[in-house]
């Protein structure tokens, strides 16, 4: 049942607005993702893939349908419990990096650990290890505006990994990166997945989607294809 899959979405719809002007971003999507999968969600802009990502990440709630995450019905969680889920189970990676400005790379990586109530020393240790993992130990004290796009995205990955989440949710992670940085980031995803981490990447680039082992195409708020590729 629900406990089998890490992510279990059942007939989810999402509608923005109401009446004549209502926008149907998702028109009934069901999806299961098991632990350890590497899934790419593809679609053109306006296809509903970002809405799907927001719902998967507990940033938004479905208009109808159910979302079971790691055996828990997200709709029944309180606002604070949802925050806890976001902090502990999901690591976000955004297209625009979304690092906190004027705050060092290390402090950015520490942030989710702070929200998870870890002690200072513990936080520092884990944040340094995460930065080490993405090869940015020497940039720990740099601020986001002192880092290149690729470096910023690596800091963001370190931040996503710091809490040891079950799922890595990436929304167009390479959209703002050059070819070289794209390769670096994708290689990192490959490594993480091969270590057993569940990775869900939302993208419109076939090059990115090709790295995944399961490809889901979304169009007009519906899943059109769902195939194992790797």
């Amino acid at each position: 049942m629900a406990a089998d899959s890490l992510i279990d979405i059942r007939d989810v719809t999402k509608t923005y607005g109401a009446g004549e002007t209502a926008v149907h971003a998702l028109r009934g999507v069901s999806l299961r993702v098991d632990a350890g999968e590497y899934v790419a969600v593809m679609g053109s802009s306006g296809s509903g893939k970002s809405t799907l990502m927001n719902i998967l990440g507990c940033l938004d709630v479905p208009s109808r349908g159910e979302y079971w995450l790691d055996g828990a019905d997200v709709a029944r969680l309180s606002e604070d419990q949802q925050a806890l889920v976001r902090g502990r189970k999901i690591g976000f990676i955004f297209q625009s990096f979304n690092l906190i400005p004027r705050t060092s790379a290390l402090a950015n990586v520490e942030l989710p650990l702070t929200y998870a109530h870890l002690k200072k020393a513990d936080r520092r240790r884990r944040a340094r290890r995460a930065l080490e993992l993405v090869g940015l130990s020497d940039r720990a004290d740099h601020r986001p505006n002192e880092l290149s796009g690729g470096q910023q995205q690596r800091v963001a990955i370190a931040r996503a990994l710091a809490t040891g989440p079950r799922i890595l949710l990436a929304d167009e992670p390479t959209g703002n990166l050059d070819a070289h940085s794209t390769d670096e980031v994708l290689a990192m995803f490959d490594d993480l997945n091969s270590e057993g981490r569940t990775v869900v990447v939302i993208t419109h680039e076939t090059e990115v989607a090709r790295r995944a082992r399961r490809l889901i195409r979304v169009s007009d708020g519906r899943i059109v294809t769902d195939e194992v590729t790797g």
Partner: peptide, 16 residues
């Protein structure tokens, strides 16, 4: 506002 969004995505609670 965006920073607040990031913080919430990273698990910040309402009261934080």
């Amino acid at each position: 506002t965006r920073e607040i969004g990031i913080r919430k995505a990273l698990g910040a609670r309402r009261r934080t």
